[in-house]
Design a binder for these strands. Structure first.
Lengths: 143, 143
DNA sequence: CAGTATCCCTTTTGATACTG
DNA sequence: CAGTATCAAAAGGGATACTG
């Protein structure tokens, strides 16, 4: 632990622990830049919602509970910029704009899906852990 | 798309599309609460770093580039509260505090790992998409 | 060493009003 | 309908000083 090689965790796909994948954790690295986008509250929800379906702006707005018009716009633009979502504008009046996942977005969704499923599967454990933590904290505060 | 069942994406594990997993997207639902924690800048990094190793506070501070002492403390407390990280205090002078993943944390790390790997594998595509988007935007701004 | 407490600045987000 | 623009509120986060 004192030799400096422990700095980055290795996402090694092989047998040894430090060859294949070395994670760059610099604040300005690409992985961090992308993760900051992906690991975003609204992005995750939007990507999940666009699973195998095209949705209009207003549909998304109604479905993603709590999102403001502004944040939905911002989120969709970022996802579009990252090549995860395709935006199609139909030149009609009133305007009709549809959003759908790109192939890249679909591949990300596969990963996100497992995250959401993990969350669903473990929400009780987490909820219990929180209660227990809070209980102990309260107990400690009394004494 | 107009029948109301399209509201929640189905994370169906079976053959049909709406039975097994229905995602609750209410703003106050458990999944959202937990996802907000997981989808956090520092949490992801800390969990990844604690992969198969125990680390001291100062080690984490040095390794997670850019994190402040305050944010590291806050992040670790949240992870501990959620039952993802175990905090062990050794009653020595100077204090020695070690952090490690709990079994729950380890299982989450498996999922996060695939997210990080996805990011690494697709960073070039995303980078290209961003350049292309920005180029078109600039082009549109000129006209 | 491993924090906590405080202050303060910056970024993010939400509400509101307006537009092609 | 699907935005954009603007402003205000809130959260996030950094720097510093202090403590068991």
């Amino acid at each position: 632990m004192e030799d400096g090689t422990s700095k980055a965790p290795s996402y090694c796909t092989g047998t040894d622990a430090d060859q294949a994948r070395q994670w760059d954790v610099r604040a300005d690295c690409d992985v961090r830049n992308i993760l900051d986008r992906v690991a975003d509250k609204w992005s995750l929800l939007v990507i999940a919602l666009l699973d195998r379906q095209t949705m209009r702006f207003s549909e998304l707005r109604r479905t993603v509970d709590g999102v403001s018009q502004r944040m939905l716009t911002v989120t969709l633009r970022r996802l579009e910029r990252d090549g995860l979502v395709r935006r199609t504008v139909y030149p009609v009046v009133p305007p009709r704009v549809e959003y759908e996942l790109t192939p890249l977005g679909i591949s990300l969704h596969e990963v996100i899906k497992s995250l959401v499923i993990w969350t669903e599967d473990h929400q009780q454990e987490i909820s219990d852990a929180r209660s227990e933590f809070d209980r102990r904290e309260l107990e400690a505060a009394v004494s």
